[in-house]
Write a protein that binds this DNA or RNA. Structure first.
Length: 423
RNA sequence: GUGGCGGUAGCUCAGUUGGCAGAGCACUGGGUUGUGGCCCCAGAGGUCGCGGGUUCAAGUCCCGUCCGUCACCCCA
């Protein structure tokens, strides 16, 4: 029997893992720049958290959650997204914190879907939540932050789509209007949309069937039926984003799958991806925290799919480059010296490595090249006899004979040059 | 949950009307380069996804099953 990772869950191997780490590090730098602090949450929540937050009729809750009974009395679920957990933690422990609260989170999310390009059962999200402000400037800030993330970490064209889905005042009336319209057009809708019409009429806007597309062209848009306050909120948000020189498209058919969204919703999409082309998405959720039993608290945020973001970087894989040295040694005595020298170098923060497979000098030199070390140190028979070591600069192909002391000094000097270059 | 395509060496794949399981890359040893990259020689590496069936004979044909992939559904 072959052991393998569960369906839709993959190992992130080096050197890919290095790119992950680097991307996460840059994102965190940006979060910090905007004044967000990390909240570290459990990967499991009581199932109730997601039922109430995401909505019992949503697909995520209906068929995509990894849910199990914990010793028979509590139903637990692997988190399918991050916002519900943040809201739960807020109500549990942070309701008295000074507002606004600016939080970011990162980690794996889980949805039991059929995997395809850009969609996995375990996927890694980075997200931010700005809690406590109902003002358009809050929406504009998280969108601006997301935009900066795209600019710093994305590649190629990335489109920003924005819309408003209204609030508890204007959305119910609109939903009725839309459903009535769709009822009249029923015979032109596909099977899926006839079902959607009942469960979540807004989603008909997402359908790719040509017939439905035509029907939707003529359909009333939520954006044209917002109440006064939602309308003003949208206009102010767009105004701020315009002033910030952020280019976007007001997409009146943009809707989102999670029930908790109110007013502003947005998505960043790349045409370079497959069918799953949303890299980051989010919006406002003014009712969520109150629905968890907390004080009425407006909030807005977004999350980003790391795998999808990284998929944009096609094939560019530079050879790994390492400061420091690879130590090549032939005979047993030389190998022992290399081992001691490696400890000495590492103690001085100089990266180094050496053979542990008893391989030939040639194979070791090859390894030095493959691993990308800037220097190779040779402890061959000649070096052993003379007591001096050979330091070879791999890029230049030059080398010199040095005492161990001189060699260490040389590598230390090179290390500080290297760290300056990286800044 | 539904559908299309696929599964042969670590990776990418070839394998004829059923007839001894192959190539390139990577890997290991060696030659050459003063000691890596280029080149040359040699070597190691395979339950042909798994189970059943047809056949003298199955990687190849049939059935089932698992896994992967892309799309639908839905979503980061």
């Amino acid at each position: 029997m072959h052991l393998q990772a569960p369906k839709g869950m993959s190992d992130v191997l080096p050197p890919e893992s290095g790119r992950w780490k680097e991307t996460i590090r840059k994102a965190e730098e940006l979060f910090d720049l905007y004044g967000y602090e990390e909240i570290i949450l459990p990967v499991l929540e009581q199932t109730e958290v997601f039922l109430k937050g995401i909505g019992p009729t949503s697909d995520i809750v209906q068929k995509e959650m990894f849910t199990f009974e914990d010793r028979g009395d509590t139903s637990l679920t692997l988190r399918p997204e991050g916002t519900a957990g943040v809201a739960r933690a807020f109500v549990q422990s942070m309701a008295k914190y000074p507002m606004p609260l600016k939080l970011y989170y990162q980690g794996p999310m889980f949805r039991r879907e059929r995997p395809q390009k850009g969609r996995f059962r375990q996927f890694f999200q980075l997200g931010v939540e700005l809690i406590g402000s109902a003002k358009p400037v809050a929406d504009a800030e998280v969108i601006a932050l997301a935009q900066d993330l795209m600019a710093a970490l994305g590649e190629g064209r990335i489109d920003l789509l924005v819309n408003s889905v209204g609030d508890s005042r204007c959305r119910p009336a609109y939903s009725e209007m839309l459903r009535a319209y769709l009822d009249r057009m029923e015979d032109r809708l596909c099977q899926d949309c006839r079902r959607r019409k009942q469960t979540n009429p807004l989603r008909v806007f997402d359908c790719k069937e040509p017939g439905c597309f035509q029907v939707v062209q003529e359909a009333p848009r939520i954006t044209d039926h917002l109440c006064e306050k939602c309308q003003a909120h949208l206009e102010e948000t767009l105004e701020l984003l315009g002033q910030a020189q952020i280019t976007l498209e007001l997409d009146k058919s943009l809707v989102r799958g999670l029930d908790y969204y109110t007013r502003t919703v947005f998505e960043f999409r790349s045409p370079a991806l497959g069918a799953q082309n949303t890299i980051a998405a989010g919006g406002r959720y003014d009712g969520l925290i109150e629905s968890y039993g907390g004080p009425p608290t407006p909030a807005t945020g977004f999350s980003l799919g790391l795998e999808r973001l990284l998929m944009l970087h096609s094939g560019e894989r530079g050879k790994a480059e390492r400061a420091g040295a690879y130590l090549v040694a032939e005979e047993a005595e030389a190998r022992n010296r290399a081992f001691i020298l490696a400890r000495e170098l590492r103690g001085r923060d100089i990266p180094c490595d050496l053979d542990c497979l008893d391989r030939s000098m040639k194979a070791q030199a090859k390894a030095a090249d493959r691993l990308g070390y800037r220097y190779t140190v040779f402890l061959g028979p000649e070096e052993l006899a003379s007591g001096r070591l050979t330091l070879r600069n791999m890029a230049a192909g030059t080398q010199e004979s040095l005492s161990e002391k001189e060699l260490i000094a040389r590598l230390e000097a090179a290390r500080s040059t290297a760290s300056k270059e990286n800044e």
